[in-house]
Nucleic acid binder design. Structure first.
Lengths: 123, 123
DNA sequence: CAGAATCCCCGATGATACTG
DNA sequence: CAGTATCATCGGGGATTCTG
């Protein structure tokens, strides 16, 4: 391995730093796109605690969420592979949601956010 | 300790579940309010890697961010107690940002999100 | 070089009504 | 009970300009 001038070594190091930073940015952006919705984290938290969760249950727990919005957010989480939707062909209709294996990998992240939020001073 | 009917015990247990859920929701909402901005996580990630970070450096690393938006986001992070701003009365002006102790408690959360995002399938 | 003030746009949510 | 469709709304953040 050739030894170059300090400036050149520094340049290489900087480039490496930038590459890592860039990868982090991509990862963080992906994560935010998925869990960044106004209700996503709350929904995931509910579903993980009460799994499987029914549509009506989630509606009650989220209090302020609209029927249409709830459907939309769940649909997004589903198409992102985080939750799984199962409809029972009964009458009245019943639909249950639960975390997929991929969704389960999110649980530690949710817990971390939760714990941090609890520790954050209210003021 | 008195033993009640199963139904009543179940009711108590449900109420407790709801309380925990509610607290989680508050915590998650707080967390999202603070780190939920479009650039917040990216900025924090940059600052933690290169601390203190200069305004101009951050601008370069964030590529697409606008001058005004960068100022705004940094200001919010500052008023939320996550970062600290230090201006040097020189010419040309120089401003440095670094994590506060409270901001440092966010690092594990950022790392968790980052790691999760890296593992998320691209498709 | 960094910040403040303005204006403006677009997309995420909310409201409402109808369907199976 | 749950989903879909449509329209209305609101606010975060982008563009621009001016200042020290």
């Amino acid at each position: 391995m050739e030894k170059d001038t300090i400036d050149e070594k520094q340049a290489v190091s900087d480039a490496e730093e930038m590459r890592i930073l860039e990868e982090n940015n991509i990862a963080l952006t992906k994560a935010m796109r998925i869990i960044g919705g106004k209700w996503k984290l709350l929904l995931l938290n509910s579903i993980r605690r009460d799994c499987p969760a029914r549509f009506g249950e989630l509606r009650k727990k989220m209090q302020d969420i609209t029927h249409a919005t709830l459907t939309a957010q769940l649909k997004e989480l589903e198409s992102d592979g985080i939750i799984e939707r199962k409809a029972y062909p009964e009458v009245p209709p019943r639909v249950e949601y639960k975390l997929t294996p991929l969704g389960i990998t999110l649980v530690p992240v949710i817990e971390a956010l939760c714990a941090w939020g609890e520790g954050y001073p209210d003021k």
